[in-house]
Amino acid sequence: MKIQAEHVVSLTYDLYVTNQEGVEELVERTTEEQPLTFLFGAGQMLPKFEENLDGVGTGDTYDFKLTAEDAYGQHDPEAVASLPKEMFEGQEMPEVGNILPLQDNHGNRFQGQVVSVVEDAVIVDLNHPMAGQDLHFKGTILNVRPATPEELDHGHAHGPDGHHHH
């Protein structure tokens, strides 16, 4: 079956990014036992990721690259936040390199990586960890099936076989 909107796709992927030496490194991998399963066309995935898979079918392999602009955007040097140390009272002080789960005023969750800890604040980089990087995806389409009415209603897949997650 071919991938199209309102279908649930299960696939494996290897994600490569090019390191500073210009060599592609594997940074993420899914397996047939633990595939990526998503409702196609529901806006859960990067739009260009879906565009590249449109019309690909079960059992097909794929191999495509996304530029940083089509993936998580360029690295924004302005996207840093200074969090007052009082925020961390009563808990362990974060260290450089830690990833902190944060929430904005609208309740959107995101992550920031601690870049430095100064006298009265923790400085956090809010860029996506993959910002500024071209992504190279290779993988295999394991399964494509029409989404169930419940999945369409919920706007996400309920696993490779359509059974509800518990």
Rank of each mutant, 00 (worst) to 15 (best):
96 V>D: 03
25 E>L: 13
23 V>D: 12
38 F>S: 01
66 L>N: 01
77 P>M: 04
63 D>W: 06
93 M>C: 04
70 D>G: 04
85 K>G: 09
29 R>C: 09
55 G>E: 08
75 H>V: 14
25 E>D: 12
103 Q>D: 01
46 L>Y: 02
72 Y>S: 00
31 T>S: 15
57 G>Q: 06
44 Q>I: 09
40 F>A: 08
58 T>Q: 13
33 E>H: 04
31 T>R: 08
59 G>L: 09
48 K>S: 14
57 G>K: 06
76 D>R: 13
42 A>K: 01
38 F>A: 00
58 T>A: 09
86 E>D: 13
83 L>G: 04
106 H>M: 09
45 M>Y: 01
86 E>N: 06
63 D>S: 15
104 D>R: 09
30 T>M: 03
103 Q>C: 10
78 E>W: 06
62 Y>F: 15
41 G>S: 07
88 F>Q: 11
101 P>G: 10
30 T>L: 04
85 K>N: 06
81 A>Q: 08
105 N>S: 15
101 P>K: 13
52 N>D: 00
62 Y>V: 03
88 F>I: 10
24 E>V: 00
96 V>P: 03
74 Q>H: 12
50 E>T: 08
84 P>Y: 10
52 N>Q: 07
69 E>T: 12
29 R>A: 11
73 G>I: 05
100 L>A: 06
89 E>Q: 14
102 L>M: 14
28 E>W: 01
33 E>P: 01
72 Y>K: 03
100 L>R: 00
31 T>L: 05
33 E>L: 03
48 K>L: 13
90 G>M: 10
51 E>M: 06
98 N>W: 00
45 M>I: 02
76 D>E: 14
64 F>Y: 13
37 T>G: 06
49 F>M: 08
80 V>R: 14
101 P>W: 10
23 V>H: 09
38 F>G: 00
99 I>F: 11
105 N>V: 15
102 L>T: 00
34 Q>V: 08
88 F>S: 07
40 F>V: 02
94 P>I: 02
38 F>C: 02
36 L>V: 07
77 P>D: 08
98 N>P: 02
60 D>N: 11
40 F>D: 00
27 V>Y: 06
101 P>D: 13
57 G>H: 07
74 Q>G: 04
66 L>T: 00
101 P>N: 12
61 T>R: 13
47 P>T: 02
87 M>E: 13
39 L>M: 10
79 A>I: 03
70 D>I: 03
48 K>Q: 15
75 H>K: 14
62 Y>T: 09
75 H>M: 06
95 E>C: 03
27 V>T: 11
94 P>R: 06
80 V>G: 01
84 P>C: 06
95 E>M: 10
77 P>R: 05
23 V>W: 06
74 Q>P: 07
28 E>N: 12
94 P>Q: 04
66 L>F: 07
86 E>H: 05
27 V>R: 04
34 Q>E: 13
43 G>I: 09
98 N>D: 15
97 G>I: 09
